[in-house]
Design a binder for these strands. Structure first.
Lengths: 357, 357
DNA sequence: TTGTATGCGTTATCAG
DNA sequence: CTGATAACGCATACAA
């Protein structure tokens, strides 16, 4: 019953072909096979081909666990990233993955739904899996996390974070981004400014964004209207609801800044629903985590944030550490203000094409 | 120079504490330590505590490679997912990860930027890493992929796919979703219908979506306007451009269906830019991969697709296989039409609150 | 260039 | 309940 090949093969039967199998088929030793596969230049053309043929014939796939055990390295780095779905993290992670892949490293990812809950447990699992390095999100983690990292001598980096005594951080100047937005609004003559932002309590990035905003405003003798400041989870619905609340309070406002593009999209939707003229009677600006703020309607001013670049830099940093090289110095990550008019090429419905006369 | 503890510790020095260290500190054998950690009930209270204390004191973390080698299983499943960033995949993956985590499984993820390119290589890497099972996206893969999977006797599942002789598929009824949209538009009396969809050539899902649309239309004696049908990459900019092209062609249209919400967002933006009254003079409907179509402006009719559910079901299926149980039967995944009015609660700017009188 | 033998850190088997 | 000891599959120093 359980000997049929195509049966539900749980654990017991998983003895797949090994180096030894290949070796005997090729009529050489295991050592030779191993070298033929990982150091082709150390072996004669003839035997190498025999080995490769045997490998092919058997469909041999190396056992990573054994290899890792013998080599004391796994060629993989772990990343623990909370609340993964629907955010800008995928972009960052993919950049990280791509950068690591250039040097043959694989990314082992954990994306726990509930934050903090068991970050240490997750990290432990990763170390047990044998990751050579670790990428963390932000820099606020329990002491145990850093302790375990240090104890295991595993290189690590904190992404989307500013500075930390605990280790290296890759991030961008969030206050500078806030300043860009504030300057823009101020230049438009706006003075009564509201804010719909992320929850600062458990989100270091939202916190820095918020404080950057406050400081930029202060430099111009302005401040956030307290009754027009709302903290909420990042999300369309949340943005919609928050803007609804703001409107309900009937505060006089010149402009509203949104903590990210999800909030902005929801807020714009609520404004439209309420018949508010944007930007005629109210300007909206936004941080652009997810690269779609430039395409929202009505067009709004936004700052493009170097999310992808964080992933890349983090990857480079880790690779440097892994190769026992001093970390490469890295310049500041680029931040760019995108003004509201840059939605795309104009299309005139009355004339047909755009380019022709 | 290289003996300092806090130096760039590449590979050589990574001999961290092992079971043996713990054993000698606790004055027991390695076997005892192993059991104390993984089978607490097989050991006396007293020694277990001694062991745990030693573990704590040394900050011991198990070596997963060695464990995997000995146990012949890694408690992890791999997933290979192309074009990961900015799509609805994160949602699906997170659901998969969460489901697997319930049983202690870890998700090893590969998210290659370029599709097909080297799917086999990626799979090989995963198998080498020692994954116990694999989740694939869609069902169109090179033969080698299935061959390798079969050869290694690794349970696997195809997500977001319909049917395949190669193995199990988890997906939803894409044509049914298309039919919902078509029925809705037809009920509104629309007959001249266009489509801005994903590239069918290299995207099985886009293909099924497109064909489902054609059939649903045919059942009602309708067809897609050829000159109002555009294939493009999923994306805001692409949707914007595509709608621009459509407008440029000056085709008479009652409605346009968008292949996903990114395209829809771009299309709506282009329509607004062109001053087209939506839905007054043109209806827009959309497949909703990313859960934000319901929040777009102007509100459009959309079908909510069970993306998250795919991840969950795939996880359950894999777990069943991993535990050597027959796969659990699963009902059809839910699809829901969301009509354009359901953007959210209404907000009356003139009255303050919504709920009070 | 190739074969041999040892070690990698755990789990599992089998006595005690 | 606990202690030896043999796998696990591969890489590598060493010998040939």
């Amino acid at each position: 019953m359980s000997s049929s090949p195509n049966r539900f093969s749980g654990l017991p039967a998983k003895r797949s072909t090994s180096l030894a199998d290949v070796a005997s088929l090729a009529g050489v030793s295991t050592g030779t096979v191993s070298r033929a596969l990982t150091r082709p230049d150390m072996i004669s053309e003839a035997t190498r081909e025999r080995v490769l043929a045997a490998v092919e014939r058997l469909g041999y796939v190396a056992n990573g666990a054994a290899r890792a055990l013998a080599m004391r390295r796994t060629m993989s780095v772990g990343a623990v990233v909370p609340r993964f779905g629907g955010s800008s993290f995928p972009t960052m992670i993919q950049a990280l993955e791509a950068t690591l892949a250039e040097q043959g490293y694989t990314l082992l990812l954990a994306a726990p739904e509930h934050r903090q809950s068991n970050e240490l447990a997750i990290l432990r699992t990763m170390l047990e899996r044998g990751v050579d390095a670790v990428a963390l999100l932000s820099s606020d983690h329990p002491r145990d996390v850093f302790a375990m990292l240090g104890n295991s001598r595993t290189p690590f980096v904190m992404m989307w974070a500013q500075e930390s005594v605990e280790g290296a951080c890759i991030g961008f100047d969030e206050p500078a981004a806030a300043a860009l937005l504030v300057d823009h609004l101020a230049e438009l003559g706006h003075r009564r400014i509201g804010f719909i932002g992320g929850l600062t309590a458990d989100n270091e990035r939202a916190r820095r964004r918020f404080q950057g905003l406050l400081r930029a405003l202060a430099r111009r003798g302005l401040e956030l209207l307290e009754e027009a400041t709302i903290e909420t989870d990042y999300g369309f619905q949340q943005g919609f609801d928050a803007m609804g609340m703001l409107l309900g309070r009937r505060v006089k406002l010149d402009a509203v800044v949104c903590g990210n593009d999800y909030l902005a999209a929801g807020a714009l939707s609520a404004l439209d629903r309420a018949g508010v003229d944007v930007p005629g009677s109210l300007s909206v600006a936004s941080f652009n985590d997810n690269d779609f703020a430039p395409f929202l309607h009505p067009p709004l001013t936004t700052v493009r944030l170097p999310i992808r670049e964080i992933g890349e830099q983090a990857g480079r940093y880790l690779l440097a550490r892994l190769h026992d090289r001093p970390p490469v110095p890295m310049g500041p990550l680029p931040i760019e203000l995108i003004r509201r008019s840059s939605t795309g090429p104009k299309v005139d419905i009355n004339r047909g094409r755009t380019s022709a006369a």
